[in-house]
Each structure stands twice: as C-alpha cells, then as structure tokens.
C-alpha cells in the first residue's frame, strides 16, 4: 500500500484500464490516463467519443464499469473510499453551469464551504468575495444566477468550485453553451488558472485554447485515447488518421 502511494504521489489523476458501458453501449474502452501536478490536459475529439464520460468518471459522477480511478493517491473506485470527501478536492465546472438558482452568486460560492468544510459564514463569504474578484465579478455578489449572463454564470461556477481549494479542476465543455462573444471571458479565467499552476483536465472544442494553454492534448475517438502529446504535436502534426480527419473538420472552415 505505502509503496504504491509513494509511486503515484506525483500524479494527481491516475486512470487505469477504465471501462464504462451504458447498457449495451460501450462508451469507454480501456482508458489509461495519468496526469501530473500542474499539467493542463485538454481532451478533444468528436461528440460521442467518451470525453465527457471520462471526465465524469474521474469524480465518480458516473460509476465506472471496470478499471480504477486514483485521485491524489486515493482509489475512488475502491468500495471503502469516501467519495464525498474525495470530491471536495476535485473541482468540476459543467457545460450548463448548474448554479443554484435560489441562491445569490456569493451564496453559491459559500454554501459548500459552510455545509461541507464547516467554515464560518464570515470566512466563507470572505473567500467568496476574493474569488469573485478573481473572476472579475465583485459587483455581482448579490445577483441571482437568473440575473447574470451565461459567461458570468460560468465564472461564478468556476469560483464556486475553487472555493473548496481543489487540487485538480475538471472542465466539461465549459464554454459550449455560451454565446460566442462571452466565450473569451471564461477562457481567460481558465487561462489565468492554468498559469497559476492549477492541475486541469479540460474537455473542449476550443482548439485555440488547447493550442495555447494545454501542456498536453489528448485526442479521443470511439471510447479510446487515439493519440496524445504536446499541442504542437497532436494539433499541428498529428500522426493518426483519425486525429487528422477530426482536426481537418474542426479547423478548416
């Protein structure tokens, strides 16, 4: 046990031979993915390739069918693992934001700090205001999600995830539901986060972001990782035919 812990200590996320089926639909077919501290891994690929399912397996929103997921040295797929506790260290940002509509922006950021981490109201709100400043929304602290634009909601959602002091952040198509002119603000927040050294797994269709910010690009198709490497390699000089054909479809128009 202790040997293994030391071996994987540098790695924030270890996914080993992960399989996930929905009924007869075999969505993930033996995924191995190892992410070190500080890496920004962008996962690209056609829709239905299993990118989002992989991300959702990493914090166990989807129960893997087989294989193991180890995050921060803890095997989440093990029966004895306290998933709730482990999830506080894994931030997640959703395509549809999923802010709590009955709470203000600040309350959205404070609620889990208080109910899960047991922080005081003052402490949680102070942290919340700092994070709102970080995503450029100090003046929206008392606004309800319904009063915010999509881009603003997503930035609040990022602040909400960061409030738990996670060691890794998962972004599930965080900009796909946004109007084009609002995408930039959210990507900038994500870029700053990456520059500050956050370990990130980003499922995205934004090839510009993947090229400029990712330390590694993973191309998935048909439930397997087809190709991975630095963006200069995967995006600019792909080796596999499936990667080439996908990139030609998303880049050339």
């Amino acid at each position: 046990m202790s040997n293994e812990t030391i071996l994987i200590d540098d790695y924030v996320v270890n996914v080993n031979d992960l399989n996930k089926s929905f009924g007869s639909n075999h969505v993930l077919r033996g995924i191995d993915l190892h992410v070190q501290r500080g890496e920004v891994v962008c996962i690209i690929g056609p829709s239905g390739s299993g990118k989002s399912t992989l991300l959702r397996c990493i914090n166990m929103l989807e129960q893997p069918t087989s294989g193991s997921v180890v995050v921060l040295g803890r095997e989440l797929t093990h029966i004895d693992c306290d998933i709730d506790e482990a999830r506080t260290k894994i931030g997640m940002v959703f395509q549809q934001f999923n802010l709590f509509p009955h709470m203000t922006a600040l309350e959205n950021i404070a609620v889990a700090q208080r109910k899960v981490l047991g922080r005081s109201k003052a402490e949680a709100e102070m942290k919340g205001l700092q994070l709102l400043a970080r995503v450029g929304l100090t003046e929206k602290a008392d606004a309800y999600p319904g009063q915010l634009s999509g881009g603003q909601q997503q930035r609040v959602a990022i602040a909400r995830a960061l409030a738990m002091d996670p060691d890794v952040m998962l972004f599930d198509e965080a900009t796909s539901a946004l109007d084009p002119e609002l995408v930039g603000d959210v990507l900038n927040v994500m870029k700053t986060l990456a520059e500050d050294g956050m370990t990130m797994l980003v499922v995205t269709h934004e090839m510009g972001f993947a090229s400029n910010v990712a330390t590694r690009v993973v191309f998935m198709d048909g439930g397997v990782i087809v190709e991975q490497g630095p963006p200069s390699q995967v995006i600019n000089a792909p080796q596999e035919d499936r990667t080439k054909s996908f990139l030609s479809r998303v880049l050339n128009h």
Partner: peptide
Amino acid sequence: VPKGQMEAARSLGMSYPR
C-alpha cells in the same frame, strides 16, 4: 429540479441527504 443541480451539489462534496 434539473439533474445538473444534484450533480453540481455532489461534485462540491455534499452527501446525497445534504
């Protein structure tokens, strides 16, 4: 209530009852 609400709450470490 949309399914994403439960997922967001659970992803923040809340238990199901919480």
